[in-house]
Amino acid sequence: MELLQYTLRKLVAGIPLLLGVTFVSFLLMVYFGPDQTYVLLGKNPTAAEIAELRAQLGYDQPFFVRYADYLRELATLDFGYSNSTGEKVAGLLGRTIPVSLALILPGFVLGNLVAIMLALVAAHHRSGWVDKTIMGISVVGMSISFLIVVIAFQIIFSSSYGLGLFPVRGWNVHSFRDYLAHIAVPTMASVFVALGYNTRFYRSVIVEELTRDHVRTARAFGVPPAKLLYRNVLKNCLIPIMTRIVFSIPLIVISGALIMETYFGIPGVGKVTFDAITTGDQPVLKAVVGLTAVLFVLAQLVTDVLYRAVDPRVSLK
């Protein structure tokens, strides 16, 4: 009951944020965005045709009427049809979001799990050669641009100049084997880059916890290192770790997917959104940006509830 009340209160508190995000993105992407009138019309349109199309696209309405329409669409989750392809927006997203998730999730999960493990090892051997090696590699991972890693891995693993193990580009998935072959290179690239940032972050969190008194006491009582790291250190670090993971989810879905989808020619939601911005496909844009904002508010809610789950001292009041 307390949890339900808390959830509702948090959702209400998320409304200003939702309004802000939808307003800024509406202003930028829809109001100042590309005008599709002359793209959709044929040659030599008459004034009546132009006016009709503008009315159909909603361009003739005043700003706040259009914004209010958008909010209504977001509330009912009905965004109409894509301007460019005529496909229903819900159908388009239903088709592309699973592709993006399938592409990104393995790398995201591995990138975080491996980073936490490396960070534990590094922190355990703090300022020894193991620590220095892991941190050195993570600075390298941080310093290479994601795009360079993607291109380099593609040359090394997929092209005929390298090992030629995996498909070079595209998304031609019919079986689980196809799936693994297609995500292999993107996953390796995203894990490589994620390891750089994540390992550093997790290590600094863990090292700070390691200097606490209760860890020293546990050590003095002879708790073995593996148990100490798991029970006394990792569990106490869960709050910053979870915050980082949950908050990176909404960004990963769009931004992280975008580069890989553009480069590998994979029909995911990142690519669809990017194309929608450049062509001014407003129904698609409105849907993606609105849903991302909702995802952010939900992410905040989830972290707050999870805080309570891992730390009983956190109050939900």
């Binding site: 993105s25 100042f32 960004l251 911005i277 991302t292 952010f296």
Partner: peptide, 19 residues
């Protein structure tokens, strides 16, 4: 800060570029 943080970076850049 919350608002600008919640708009995916590359989409924001693309939108600003067009605006």
């Amino acid at each position: 800060m919350g608002v600008l943080d919640s708009i995916p970076f590359y989409l924001l850049v693309a939108a600003i570029a067009f605006a």
